[in-house]
Nucleic acid binder design. Structure first.
Lengths: 187, 187
DNA sequence: AGAATTGTTTGACAAAAGTCAAAAACGGTT
DNA sequence: AACCGTTTTTGACTTTTGTCAAACAATTCT
């Protein structure tokens, strides 16, 4: 997680703590279609998107790419499970556009956990937030039709809409590409 | 989270820490059809199910109960968002069977956070685990048919199958009750 | 520019899932 | 045992979504 004023204030970080945190981060460029993380690899970095767009996906039984998330500007990229528990990632993360990130390595992040108690709390809250997002996501599948899910997506990510393919959105909302094409036409 | 040998060992808790934790918990009985938590209330307790079965649900736009989770023996009951952030709960939690829990209050849990550093870590891992569960759940909606989702449910919760209504399972896997009845018949 | 690749739309059809309403089955109560 | 409310099953039908294949459009590569 990239440190910013809001976080610093919310968790009462001292100047030294902020500075220590900042020094942990390094810039990273990921060009369009390059991977930030490959399935099977261990996630060694947390990334914060400064500019660009990435997406995460898994493969289904027929080798189709199933989008699990999009990462536009100001979002955090992490395969939590892989990063925290040092196990191979189940998902791929790939850049849609040329993207600029700030990243922190596992070792450096661990240092932060040890040296700055608030970091444990920040990460607990973060895991918490991610978890709520996922509950919301599951809820939508449970209660909404394909058309409603698409409308919700449009409202929530109007920016992404124009920056990725129909296919990657279709798999994200769980419909066939032909179906999504027809949903779009209707409006 | 109820303390047990595994947790104590994994997080290197001292005897004193374990004892302090234990003293925080109190038994609670929730009879069938009674609420453990009502929508709009703030979740003041974490509960651990010793015996019985509960379920959480939300209401959709037509006032149908949409099951979001089941809590059989040895599971943890908590509305994370409400408990951690002290905001009104969005979900209801209600006992299906007469149930016996061990609960800890928010205040006591906070004490544990302060006095036992490992508790922050435990809860981070827990939120993490919940989050992974939810990702898996969303994935299933994304990639599986109703029949496959039902089969998965049966494999994962063979115990629950006989202990709750068709309706509450149907809403959990996101199908109409008539459809689930037909899915069952086919096998 | 032209070829090759990738992404999108469309049509005809099939399969999956929802709707409505009624009947049947079940569980608890008196 | 008869009654009540709830849950489950079933039938007839509609709507939604998926499948396959071809055409079309856009993009990239040489």
């Amino acid at each position: 997680m990239k440190i910013d004023d809001n976080i610093a204030k919310k968790y009462n970080l001292t100047e030294e703590e902020i500075s220590l945190t900042m020094r942990g981060y390094a810039p990273l460029t990921v060009r369009a279609n390059e991977f930030f993380l490959k399935e099977g690899d261990i996630c060694n970095y947390i990334g914060f998107v400064i500019k660009g767009l990435l997406r995460s996906f898994i493969y289904d039984d027929y080798a189709n790419e199933i989008t699990s998330d999009f990462f536009p500007e100001n979002t955090l990229i992490i395969s939590f499970d892989s990063f925290n528990n040092r196990v191979p990632s189940k998902e791929n993360i790939k850049a849609i556009e040329n993207s600029e990130l700030m990243v922190i390595s596992y070792e450096k992040q661990k240092e932060l956990y040890d040296k700055i108690p608030a970091w444990n709390l920040i990460c607990r809250d973060l895991a918490d937030y991610k978890s709520r997002e996922m509950i919301e996501r599951a809820n939508r599948f449970q209660t909404m039709s394909a058309t409603e899910r698409y409308q919700t997506f449009c409202n929530e990510h109007p920016d992404i809409l124009q920056r990725t393919t129909l296919g990657s959105i279709a798999s994200y909302i769980g419909v066939d590409i032909a179906t999504l094409s027809r949903i779009r036409k209707k409006k």
